[in-house]
Structures are given as C-alpha cells and as structure tokens.
C-alpha cells in the first residue's frame, strides 16, 4: 500500500474561555468560506474527516473541525480532577465563538451534529450578524430523552463500551460497517463522564422551544438535515423545529442515522454538497 498524506493538517490553539485556559486541537483543510464543524456529544472532530478530505468541498470551503475541551486531543482544563464536567449553553457558545475569534474566522458557516446541531440554533439566535449560515445535523430545539444518562458514568460499567453500545442503534442499518465501527470507536475512547457531561447540556440546558421563533433567517440562514433512522433526534423533531423558524429549510436524509458525516460519508455528501453550494451562492 502506498502511503498517502491527507490534505488535512492538525494543530493546537490555546485560548481563554470564561476565564479558563484551554488547549484545543483542530484539523483543517481547504480554502474559502470558513466551515466550522461541531462533533456530537461524547465524540471528537474526526467525525468530519471525510469532509476534510473531499475536494469538492475543500475547493470552496476552509473546513475546520475541532475537539471540544475534554474530548479527543483537546485537554480538559487544569483542575479537571476536582470537578464534574457539565457542558452548558453558555460554555458551549463561548467556546465556539472563542475558536472563531482565535482562528480569525470571518462570517463562518457553522455546522454541528446532535448537540452541535442543537447549539447552532442558539448561535443563529444570538450571533446571527457574525455568521454566514448554520447547518444543524440531527438538530432540534428539544427532544424527548430515551435513556438515563447516569448509566454512562459508573465505577462498575465501562463508560466507553456502554456509550458506544447505546448510540450504536442510531447508526442506520445501511451504513457501511467500516464507518459504523469507526464512528463507535469515538465513543469507546471517550473520557470518563464526558459523554454524560455533554448530555447535561443536551438534556437540561438547551430547551430552545420558547425562543427559536426569533431566529432571523434573512440574517443567518438555517439548514436542518436529519437521518431517517435517527430515533434520538427524530425527523419529526427536526421538521417541528424547522416549522417554528421562518425561512428554515429541513431535509430528511434517507438511509442515514444520527451520525451522517461519519457513518456513511458517500450518502451524506449527496445531501450536504447541494446545501454548501447554495450557501456559497
């Protein structure tokens, strides 16, 4: 096999968020419109590696995917061992906007999946003038929980194993095994309590039903795409959300589940490239 260097490069950026220093890892490829990608809860930015290596995307977009603090190669803050990690809307927004500022991303498109798909709604609401558009994958203003997150962080149950097993049913049956298991690997290697800490944001601090009607899509267009096999954020959740945002566009993706960009990249690009072309204008 011939070795092949990918176009994507990985670097670290040190930045302050809410008075704490974070060392954040990010990968990027391409040039053009900044496209900042947000991973799902309990996972990492490598979920977007296929976009980073897609010349049809990187030709016009500077694709950037970073690991949230506590995830992947981004460290938790100093003193993490003394606290319980619990992501909030405020911390999540502050982290994303700090990354945008430090990397000097002008008018970026922000695309997030699952919890990333949730936070882009808040970004569209609170930071519309600074953004070119948001794309919410598996995105909704609220959704009903389907398991007790306490099971994710116990001394006698392997957190990575149980996290991966729980989300494995959210991958569509048609998705290639290679990418199914790569997606699950991200969950299997998560830090203790991190998935649960992300879900604090998702379950307890991000019910946006009372506010998303105020999103101005003439200022910040909103695109929502959800896989038909996602029973966590269901197509109905997404369609209901889109119906509340005047001007939002919603697409239900066939043969995809909760992790479209990583579980079946070929199928996903059929849906995402037309959206990116439209945003580019």
């Amino acid at each position: 096999m011939v070795a092949r260097l990918e176009e994507a490069t990985g670097r670290y950026v040190n930045l302050m968020v809410q008075g704490r220093l974070y060392r954040i890892y990010f990968e990027e490829a391409g040039r053009g419109i900044p496209l900042l990608c947000l991973h799902t809860a309990g996972a990492e930015g490598s979920q977007y590696r296929h976009l980073l290596n897609d010349p049809d995307i990187t030709r016009n977009y500077r694709v950037i995917a970073f690991d949230m603090p506590w995830h992947g190669k981004s460290l938790p803050p100093v003193g993490y061992h003394l606290e319980e990690y619990r992501l909030t809307t405020d911390l999540y927004v502050a982290t994303i906007m700090a990354v945008c500022q430090e990397l000097e991303l002008e008018q970026p498109v922000i695309m997030g999946c699952s919890m990333g798909g949730r936070i882009v709604l808040q970004l569209a609401l609170a930071h519309a003038p600074e953004l070119r558009a948001v794309i919410g994958l598996e995105s909704a203003d609220h959704q009903e929980p389907w398991y007790d997150t306490d099971w994710l962080h116990l001394p006698d149950i392997h957190g990575g194993e149980v996290s991966a097993a729980l989300v494995s049913g959210l991958v569509a049956p048609q998705s290639p095994d290679e990418y199914r298991w790569e997606t699950l690997w991200g969950y299997q290697q998560g830090g203790p309590g991190v998935f649960k800490g992300d879900l604090h944001f998702y379950r307890a601090d991000s019910d946006y039903r009372d506010r998303i009607g105020n999103i101005d899509t003439t200022q910040c267009p909103v695109y929502l795409l959800t896989g038909e096999y996602d029973y966590s954020c269901t197509p109905e959740d997404t369609l209901r959300t889109a119906a509340r945002i005047k001007g939002a566009e919603a697409t239900i993706m066939e043969g995809l589940g909760h992790f479209p960009m990583s579980e079946d990249p070929q199928q996903f690009r059929r849906y995402i490239i037309p959206i990116l072309d439209k945003i580019r204008g």
């Binding site: 389907w146 398991y147 049913g169 038909e228 096999y229 029973y231």
Partner: peptide, 16 residues
C-alpha cells in the same frame, strides 16, 4: 433484514 426506521434497535422500539 433491513428494518424500517424505528424498528432497528431495542431502545428505538422502547422510545416508540
């Protein structure tokens, strides 16, 4: 062989 959405996973069926 290829269940329809909602019927592919035990927890999905529980949610349904």
């Amino acid at each position: 062989p290829v269940p329809r959405p909602g019927y592919y996973d035990l927890f999905g069926m529980c949610k349904l």
